[in-house]
Write a protein that binds this DNA or RNA. Structure first.
Lengths: 252, 252
DNA sequence: GAGTGGTCTAGACCACGGC
DNA sequence: CCGTGGTCTAGACCACTCA
């Protein structure tokens, strides 16, 4: 009746890192996602199938899938099925972007690649959890909001995960990096942490964004994580906040 | 068997804004919170009691309570009961604060009241959803992180909701505003929206924070909401980000 | 030991989507 | 029409807390 690897109910007494059944199911589903058994955009098996596959009730599968849906790893669609979340074909192709225009609505958002290099950067490598001699890519990008230059970004990626990255590849995806990561390299970003500071615009950045050096700017440093909290992208963004702001919603 | 006001299951056909049973229960529970039947820190009735009170199964109550617990309106404690969330007696008395020191850990966080006035401010009143002639309080506050001046804040409150607010009241609560709002005025802040910009420090602010005028600073504007998305606090915070940063976690 | 929330099951019925 | 996810129920057993 039960899979040998699963522990039903709360085992009594000494059980170090016990997880309830639905969490174990959740972990198994995540496993299948990481292994690529079900790829972004594809449907996963129905709840009933999963229930029989793992030898648990539909309710338990529902709870596992429910948590993954809340975390936006999966997407449920009544009448159709449950799908692996994807950035491909979504409305916002810049899902983590927190910059908005002050007055107007956000109409148009485009990016232009300014450069792509490959090299070593010990500090970045360390933040990415790599050895300090690991090679990384460095992308430079300009973000235009409603046809005005808004942000200058420097993005660092571990070369090992992104073998074969080139300017051509980036441009094929119209600079929409997160959907490119997913489609080309199977890396889906799930989560990010940002640190925001106010700085004076360095000369080079001011030149790129067409503002005077010494303009106050937002400096946003981001670490983005894939499945399993693995840091896989580093980003430094200078944003001219004369006509834009960084928006955030705080909940309890 | 059923309360006359509740619609069981999905009623067929024309049903304009239908909500499933557990959402109706959730709304009823929220009602009791707003009305003050159960106050912050107090336990609410057990799931079994609520189930019989609303004539639904325990499972349905669980789902309603579950959502409220996720939103941190309620707090569940196994073996004890379910309680109305409160800021009183919590570790962080500044629950919405996103400012952290760059290098050291956050050891100590204190606030000092610089002033409290009562007056009119049409722009603020409008943002608070009041008539533009409504009176508001204006609090000025200094935030010290690890004994260094970090932020200067201006806080605006609707006078109607905060009748009897005074410097003495604020100081009795050691400047911990959100727990004071709750304890003295029954206003619990659940949610906030912030806009962050980079600006040059105005002279007065620079003087208060002991930095040179023209230092780049974070300007953080916040609207905070109580139960039912009612805007009830406005905040403008200048933060010296030389040794601090604004931190944010982004999830899918 | 009584009462609370937490997990798990089994089964019913529903709304939705597509064949 | 069938299969999907969404809601609701009833009941079992568990772990935790407190008297």
């Amino acid at each position: 009746m039960k899979s040998a690897a699963l522990y039903r109910a709360q085992p009594r007494g000494e059980s170090p890192a016990f997880q309830p059944l639905y969490r174990q199911i959740k972990a198994l589903i995540t496993q299948s996602l990481v292994s690529g058994e079900w790829r972004p955009g594809e449907p996963i098996p129905s709840e009933i199938e999963l229930a029989s596959r793992y030898s648990v009730s539909q309710g338990t599968v529902r709870k596992a899938v429910g948590e993954l849906a809340e975390e936006r790893v999966l997407v449920r669609q009544q009448g159709k099925g449950t799908f692996v979340a994807t950035y491909a074909g979504e409305r916002s192709q810049f899902p983590f972007l927190r910059i908005n225009p002050d007055a107007e609505p956000m109409r148009e958002l485009t990016a232009r690649l300014l450069g792509l290099e490959r090299g070593r950067d010990p500090a970045a490598a360390r933040l990415l959890g790599l050895s300090s001699t690991a090679t990384t890519f460095l992308l430079k990008r300009l973000l235009m909001i409603n046809d005005r230059a808004a942000c200058y970004e420097e993005i660092r990626l571990p070369a090992a995960r992104f073998k074969g990255l080139s300017a051509t590849v980036v441009e094929q995806h119209e600079c929409m990096l997160y959907s490119m990561y997913e489609a080309r390299f199977g890396v889906r970003m799930l989560q990010a942490e940002e640190r925001v500071k106010a700085v004076l615009a360095p000369r080079e950045v001011a030149a790129i964004l067409h503002c005077v050096p010494g303009t106050p700017m937002l400096l946003i440093e981001r670490v983005a994580f894939t499945y399993g909290q693995e840091p896989s992208e580093l980003r430094r963004c200078y944003c001219d906040s004369q006509e834009h702001h960084y928006r955030n919603a705080i909940t309890g």
